[in-house]
Design a protein around this nucleic acid. Structure first.
Lengths: 215, 215, 215, 215
DNA sequence: AATGAATGAGGTTTCATTCAT
DNA sequence: CATGAATGAAACCTCATTCAT
């Protein structure tokens, strides 16, 4: 995942600045892959991004904002991904499958973020109001998208009729749960198999658990 | 959850010391319910436990060890709980259901720990080797217990034949995932419904997803 | 001026702590004698007081509070001095003369404070509300004391009848003005005569300027 | 007080540059009216003057030089004012009175400078040698002018014979003292009467205190 | 001439840990 | 056994100054 995409037509200097922000985020994220928010110093982020501390503070309001920006950046990406997969052409089954695979793969490619994505929800978000608000908003959007997809699946008889938000909750529990599981292996120096692709298991679990009664 | 149980027959002074350790852990945990590991100072833990800092350092090697002890203590409890529910008399279905309900309830009663339990796995454990080792060991034991239970279920035809560890992984993913979900609501000051009991959903999901083909 | 006096009967540890606070203030003041508030670091104050920085922060809430405490301490002293001289036995003339001489001498003995006393009123007090409030309170008390003295002088026919607060204002203008003048010499490395005793000039100026019309 | 005066016949570019310096000084002074030297950043001065920081550094050697230039600029003005009033036609009494009124009014119109003028003498000048030297020179000139005036007054029998520098010192003490007093009210948000005109009091005090014995 | 992005030394403050009592 | 005063390394952040454009 590189940070090169969204570089539309901006007033010259603005573009440079935006590129620097993204470089700084990339540096911060790479550090987060092996260390914790509280153990990473602003000096280190600056050094890793090859900027001076002072400039980092011109780009971001403070350490917390760097982290919040990173979270937001990746959330946007995740949101786009889910939206795109759901909007695809194809049968509902295929699209459900595609979303699950897409998200799984995305998490696999962003292990640092995955860990902090979950970690943020459970810890940081609890104490930093700005971050909490951001997370809530993004989560709500993702939920909405998935609810719509499962509603469609119910309408087409692919899933049993019922509250689609229960399916969504189950799907997200499974995704989170398996991602967390993978992360443990991922960071465990002993285990070398690393990331297991749970996407098929998740899809099968969902489709079976919420299958229409008599098929 | 009080810390009063393991007070066997120990040499007088040892018992006193052990009681003090438990009191300190209790104080630490109550602080963790509303704040993060990094935001809690040792002086606060000492004050809350009504000990001096110096004595706290006699009881534990340092801040990290307090945390590690807390984790271990709760893990032991969880392990005991799971073991007890599995060892129960009754049908496999009932015992699966009992385990899920038991763990769900336990998490509900230990929200602070739940959050830090998951948080620890995803973050702290990554950087503190002692904690990581502890977590791994406990996780392995829990896995083993559940594998045995699901193997039994397969043998009795309650679940479809296959690798029981897949069922275990799925169950734990669901448990973690739903706990995480509940924690978000739990700590969100806006939402007041608080803890939803997902145990029935989890049991149904598991039993359906891994049901024998032709029932 | 040593900081040894007010050490009544306090709970043992409290006394020690108070002594340390005074030692720290003394260190801070001696640094202020040659440097400015903004140019003195907390590290330096700590080093000069032979404490660690951390302990300094246990004794005072922050750098600003050190300064505010110092100001208050000296103001208390000045207030006591003025009160004592005014309360003396003797003729009004003698008491006026004694106050002027007393304050002049006191300023001479506290050049660092004198400079910061005036400086604080003109600059710091402007931006730090706590300090400003303190200064205002102390100034009001001093004014009141002097007003009473001059009222008495008017009643006894030593000064012409009129608003005593004009005399007070004039006296304080003269005191401040001459102190400022002395400070310039005091800190000028070229001039070596140092402190001139303007007390007689001040007394004469006041008594003549406000003398009863026909003597 | 605008900074437009000294724009003689200079080589084109020089004139432009000089105008920019004056604009920068004006910006700096307006900031000093509400904040302290140490709390004002160079970036703020630049922004307020609508220059870039870089250009400001082309105009002045550094932050300190901006301040020193400002002080010098105002001192020149004050000096001119005093000289002009003393050189006036008219009786000595009138000229003394005119000087006192002139200076009082000037201080009233330059409260920011007044505060920093006194502040500089008492604090900054102490640590910055260039500024100290400047202040000393200007002060010496002012003293000389006033000494001459009071000598004349003595020669004409308006004041009692004696050392004119004592009268000068007293006058300046009174001026400073009352200005300082006014500044306290000026910056005190509570008091709204603001600037009191002490010029009459000062003139009367001086003329009475140093009046010839038998009038 | 004029800009402002970029620098980095240095300031204030916190907090895990120690040790004399 | 138990205390808590005292430590000091290290964190976050600011801002005077420079320099490529």
């Amino acid at each position: 995942m590189t940070y090169s995409d969204p570089m539309h037509a901006l007033p010259r200097k603005e573009r440079e600045r935006e590129r620097h922000r993204l470089e700084a985020l990339q540096a911060a994220e790479s550090l987060l892959e092996h260390r914790l928010y509280h153990d990473i110093t602003v000096q280190e982020i600056a050094a890793s991004a090859e900027f001076s501390v002072g400039y980092l503070y011109k780009l971001f309001a403070g350490k917390e904002e760097i982290y919040a920006s990173l979270l937001k950046h990746r959330y946007d990406e995740l949101e786009e991904l889910v939206t795109a997969h759901i909007a695809r052409r194809g049968s509902v089954e295929d699209r459900i499958s595609a979303v699950v695979r897409g998200v799984s793969t995305w998490f696999k490619n962003n292990p640092a973020f995955a860990s902090n994505y979950l970690g943020a929800i459970l810890t940081l978000a609890r104490t930093r109001e700005t971050i909490a608000a951001d997370v809530s908003r993004h989560e709500a959007i993702l939920q909405e998208r998935l609810n719509a997809l499962f509603q469609e699946a119910m309408d087409e008889g692919v899933l049993a009729r019922g509250d689609p938000s229960v399916v969504t909750a189950t799907l997200r529990a499974l995704l989170w749960g398996f991602v967390a599981r993978n992360l443990v292996s991922w960071f465990d120096p002993a285990k070398k198999e690393k990331w297991t692709d749970y996407a098929p298991t998740i899809v099968r679990t969902i489709t079976r658990a919420f299958a229409p009664e008599n098929t």
